[in-house]
Simulated assay, not measured.
Amino acid sequence: MALFCLHCLDNETDGAARRAEARPAHLHWAGGLGPVVRMAGPLLDAEGRMVGSVFLIEAESLAAAKALNAEDPYSKAGVFGRVTLNETRWAIGEGKPA
């Protein structure tokens, strides 16, 4: 399995409101993904407000990672204005796969 970094920034028009509305469904969905998710959490601005999301996920391919993102309730609710998805390799840090 490959490792992918999903970096999502909320849309600047109504992303915060959409995020707040979809948050319970998003947390339920993300919590059910199990070990596919190596790390996940909100991106915060200088005042501590949520302005995006980041995921480090394992997937068979870039297409599979994109499909997983498409199932996120945040994606379905139009929370994100910009999404970047890149394959990555874990070089250093606690939790690095053997």
Rank of each mutant, 00 (worst) to 15 (best):
H7I: 09
H7N: 09
C8E: 15
L9M: 13
D10N: 01
E12M: 13
E12P: 01
D14C: 10
G15V: 07
G15L: 05
A16S: 12
A16E: 13
A16V: 02
A16H: 12
A16W: 00
A17K: 09
A17V: 13
R19T: 08
A20D: 11
A20I: 04
A22W: 07
R23G: 07
P24C: 03
P24D: 10
P24I: 04
A25K: 10
H26W: 06
H26V: 03
L27R: 14
L27C: 09
L27Y: 10
H28R: 15
H28L: 15
W29H: 15
A30L: 14
A30D: 00
G31T: 01
G32F: 02
G32V: 05
G34C: 09
P35F: 03
P35H: 10
P35D: 12
V36Y: 03
V36S: 10
V37M: 11
M39L: 15
A40F: 06
A40N: 06
A40I: 03
G41I: 08
G41T: 07
P42V: 13
P42S: 12
P42W: 00
L43D: 01
D45L: 02
D45H: 08
A46P: 08
G48E: 02
G48R: 00
R49I: 02
M50Q: 13
M50S: 13
V51Q: 08
G52M: 09
S53Q: 04
S53I: 00
V54T: 14
V54I: 13
F55W: 14
F55K: 01
L56E: 04
L56D: 04
I57D: 05
E58P: 09
E58L: 07
A59H: 07
A59W: 02
E60D: 15
E60V: 05
S61T: 12
A65E: 08
K66S: 10
A67K: 08
A67Q: 08
N69A: 15
A70Q: 13
A70G: 07
A70H: 01
E71Q: 15
E71C: 14
D72K: 03
S75V: 06
S75M: 13
K76I: 14
K76M: 06
K76H: 07
